[in-house]
Design a protein around this nucleic acid. Structure first.
Length: 497
RNA sequence: GCUCCCGUAGUCUAGUCCGGUCAAGGAUAUCGGGCCUUCGACCCGACAACGCGGGUUCGAAUCCCGCCGGGAGCACCA
């Protein structure tokens, strides 16, 4: 019997600075413009890891400020993301929405305004950027706090149009990183927000909103990807201004899965247009799509955690994830024979006593049972195998040997004829087969979105929706959850070899 | 260009903070062998790395300096 191999022990990650059990508060901050994907898994599992380790709390804070024309909030995604998290086995202690917290942000804005640390700038964005690059001050930089406050209130009350005014923070204009010079804190947008509509016109930018919310929500440690390191600096700058000691930041590098060309905007467009089969389409590489493919959450977690908190940007082949999954599902997946691009082959003198064979569901685990397969002398065989072994003697796996005809047509479904060649188990190529008697149609959704069609043995219909099977010599597949047992074709999603 | 980050085998990663126990461990891939009526699993074995150059030291993957290489950010996005 195949022992279920213990999963590789994940080494302890570094401790969180100053973390005390029971007092750790973490937060995840997805922007609701797409389903969570394999690249987000690191954020999820790392946060969850430390939450568990320190018996802390984990908040889900939707970072749903209004975004931009290119980066829109989509109402549907709030639910999708929460479901994704559920699938990951990650429960959150509370859910917050940035879009509900604007009044708090405004209140903090007045605090920094009162400090004289800001000004309302009227430069068009191009001018602003040019001045920033040159290290030049805009005329409004000399505003008094009182003037700024008046202008700020005018912004809030609709006194300026979109792009007409922004609230900027005074940093050092000689700051070596131009990106850091006099950052914009608030801007005006009248994009329709799917949750709050036009309730707000003045929206905070990410770093200001987090400088506020990380404090207001009592976050003890900020765990985020290293693409946001500059935002750390901004948050610290603001905290220092206000005399606040904020939480420490922890980062990790970018993780890419080689085979997964993830583009949230492309996925979004394809899902919305119906080109993709929803957010669980395998081409999105969403967490839901991995579930659909029979890739266990536990495998994704182990895969993700194996990279630790490394700051290097890495690209890992999907095979590594598959290997992680394989050790988990190989012991539980029942074996079935699947024939792609089937060609009927009549074995003329097939012996009468081989009319039924009983096969084990799993080669090493008898407790998974067995199934009987009826055989009538006509077989469906994979065309690719027939072509590869034309004229040779091959073995129908678990059954008998046959001699194939010398030539195999490259298309068409006219039955071919083969001859029986004994039943002794010889070391010759083994082919999957489906008996003409009761073969069931299978629709296999591949990772690239293509549907592959073939025939499988009858028992495939007995599978439960969501069950993981191994199509021998093809790979692991998962029965689609919206498929009902017994229906044909049997609809499956390809997992990996 | 500017700012920041990173450089351990094909790909990831442990070790680097507090130099010796690291002639560098693990995973995955690859190759060979075994076993099994799967090209899957399992077992055994092999291959394979501290970016380069200086310095400090009895001793450096670990500390210092320089270089080279890679990545990310540089939005009135998140």
């Amino acid at each position: 019997m195949a022992a279920v191999r213990p999963t590789r022990a994940v080494g302890e990650l570094p401790a969180l600075a100053g973390a005390e059990p029971g007092k750790v508060v973490l937060r995840m901050a997805p922007f609701p413009s797409g389903a969570l994907h394999i690249g987000n898994a690191r954020m999820i599992f790392l946060n969850d890891y430390y939450r568990r380790r320190y018996d802390g709390k984990l908040l889900l804070v939707f970072d749903d400020t209004v975004g931009s024309e290119e980066k829109r909030v989509d109402n549907e995604l709030f639910g999708v993301i929460r479901q994704d998290l559920e699938h990951c086995g990650v429960a959150v202690d509370a859910v917050h929405y940035k879009s509900d917290r604007l009044l708090t942000h405004y209140a903090w804005a007045e605090r920094v305004i009162a400090l004289g640390a800001t000004y309302v700038c009227f430069c068009p964005s191009a001018t602003l950027q040019e001045n920033r690059r040159k290290g030049l001050a805009c005329a409004e930089r000399t505003q008094s706090p009182g003037e700024t406050l008046d202008l700020w209130r005018k912004m809030l009350s609709g006194g300026f149009g979109v792009g007409g005014a922004v609230l900027r923070l005074k940093t050092d204009l000689a700051e070596p990183d131009p990106a850091f010079r006099d950052r914009v804190l608030f801007r005006i947008s009248d994009l329709d927000h799917p949750r709050v509509g036009h309730k707000w016109r003045v929206w905070p930018l990410l770093e200001f909103s987090w400088a506020v919310d990380d404090i207001e929500l009592g976050v003890s440690h900020v765990l985020r990807g290293k693409d946001l390191v500059m935002e750390d600096r901004m948050q610290r700058f603001l905290w220092q201004l206000l005399g606040i000691e904020g939480p420490p930041f922890v980062h990790w590098g970018l993780l890419r899965v080689r085979e997964a060309k993830i583009s949230k905007s492309k996925s979004y467009a394809e899902v919305k247009s119906g080109e993709y089969d929803g957010w669980a389409d395998p081409r999105t590489w969403s967490l839901a799509s991995l579930v659909r493919r029979g890739i266990l959450n536990d495998a994704v977690r182990a895969f993700t955690m194996s990279f630790g908190l490394s700051l290097a940007d890495i690209e890992v082949p999907a095979e590594t994830l598959y290997a992680e999954n394989r050790t988990r599902i190989d012991p539980i997946a029942k074996r079935r024979m699947f024939v792609e691009d089937p060609v009927p082959v009549v074995v003329d003198d097939f012996p009468a006593d081989l009319r039924t064979v009983t096969l084990a569901n799993h080669p090493e685990r008898p407790e998974l049972g067995e199934r009987a397969v009826a055989v009538d002398g006509t077989f469906y065989l994979p065309r690719a195998d027939l072509v590869a072994h034309a004229g040779a003697t091959v073995r129908l796996k678990d059954l008998s040997n046959i001699e194939l005809p010398a030539t195999i047509p490259t298309d068409g479904v006219a039955p071919l004829h083969a001859t029986f060649a004994g039943r002794e188990n010889r070391r010759i190529p083994r082919l999957q087969w489906a008996s003409g008697d009761g073969a069931v149609a299978v629709d296999l959704l591949d990772v690239d979105g293509r549907h592959r069609h073939g025939l499988a043995e009858p028992s495939t219909r007995d599978a439960a929706p969501g069950e993981i099977l191994q199509f021998e010599r093809v790979g692991f597949v998962r029965i689609e959850t919206d498929w009902s047992s017994g229906m044909t074709p049997v609809r499956v999603s390809f997992g990996h070899p």
